[in-house]
Computed example of a mutant assay.
Amino acid sequence: MTTDLLPALADRARAAAHARTPACPCGAATLADRADATVVRHAGTVAKAHAPDTDPTELALRVTTAAHLPDVLVPPLGPTPVDLHGRLVTCWPYGTPVDPDAAPWEAAAALLALLHRTPAPVTLPPMRGPAKAARAIAALRTRAAQHPGAAPVLRAWAALPAWARGEAAMPDAVTLCHGDLHLGQLVRHPAPEGPWLLIDVDDLGTGVPAWDLARPAAWYACGLLPPDEWTRFLAAYRAAGGPAVPPDGDPWPALDVPARALTAQTAARAVTKAVAAGRALDEVERSLVDACARMASVALASPRS
């Protein structure tokens, strides 16, 4: 992040929040300040500086898609990203985030099913889930390859098909996908008690819809998500007509590859962060690495034809 980006982003959020009045009784808050995203809130407006390598044409297509799906995605406050200190910036309405103790699994599943059933614009690029996973693996190789947890993660990754590693086209090039679904991507809009909607269009695109179910599936498989919560999520997705899994029976043939990829991605990030911080893996991080180790002894499920 450049030194001047954060105050400039705060100014951008203030201008968007008070476009109709010069009065400003409210303060700003930094919601995130990472290498891949800086997010500032001012009153009911959020300004986001996207990753430095963001493609402007692709981001504009993703923002435009969100603007046309107000029942699924929080709509942007403007259709065109702007350049601010070398970073593309978009503005959005603020939404109330998820309470971790009351996870809206049914709402998340219903939104995903609706997104997956919505025809994708023909110009929309592929969703970026596999590419992001590949970057996490590349970072592991570069920064933490000597850590004992790296080897099982890399073995699990190497066993995946090329499309899941971001090395080949996905077998589905038409289904509209979020690309990075987790509970942090849901907000109530309008805040504070509006309906649940999805946020974050950075990875939105066409691809394999099971990828959007893969993180909760992976958590469930690793013992990090209770079975009843996974069951609620899966049942709600099926009830809403989601196409990522069969309407009944075993969903795992469709979910296995994406779930393994997300497990490897999350484990890679965990090991890399632990090495950077000079600390041991915590219990959750060890469970992810252990899950990668177990994958070697279990054959990949064959998708239904």
Rank of each mutant, 00 (worst) to 15 (best):
L213P: 03
G249P: 02
D248P: 01
L197S: 02
P253L: 02
V208Y: 12
T206S: 06
A214S: 14
A221M: 11
A261R: 04
D200I: 01
V245W: 05
Y220K: 08
A261F: 02
R232H: 12
D256L: 01
G207Q: 08
L198D: 00
R238P: 09
G207W: 13
Y220Q: 15
P227D: 14
L262P: 00
L234Q: 03
G207A: 06
P258E: 09
D228L: 13
P195S: 04
P247A: 10
I199D: 00
D202N: 06
W252L: 04
A259T: 05
I199W: 00
V201D: 05
A235Q: 13
Y220V: 11
Y220T: 14
Y220F: 15
D248L: 10
G207H: 07
R215N: 15
A214T: 02
L234G: 06
W252D: 03
T206K: 06
G205A: 07
G207F: 10
P253M: 05
P253K: 09
W252R: 04
W211V: 14
E229H: 14
L255C: 07
V245G: 00
L255E: 01
Y220G: 12
P209E: 11
L213H: 00
V208G: 07
T206I: 04
A239D: 06
D256Q: 00
G205Y: 04
I199Q: 04
D202S: 13
C222Q: 14
D248M: 06
G207V: 10
G241D: 01
D248H: 15
P209G: 06
G249L: 07
V257G: 04
D202V: 13
R238N: 10
Y220E: 14
A218Y: 03
A244V: 12
R232E: 14
D212L: 10
L213C: 05
I199H: 01
L204N: 03
L198H: 02
L213G: 04
D250P: 01
P216N: 13
F233R: 12
L204R: 00
L234N: 10
E229V: 08
G242H: 01
A210Y: 04
Y237W: 03
G249W: 14
A217D: 11
C222H: 06
W211A: 13
R260T: 03
L255D: 02
P226R: 13
L213D: 13
A244G: 12
A217P: 12
A235E: 15
A214Q: 09
L213I: 12
L225S: 09
R238K: 12
W230H: 13
G205L: 02
V245A: 08
I199P: 00
V245K: 03
G249I: 05
P246R: 14
P246L: 14
W219C: 13
P251G: 08
D250L: 05
D202E: 15
T231I: 05
L255N: 04
P227Q: 10
G207E: 02
P246Q: 09
D202W: 08
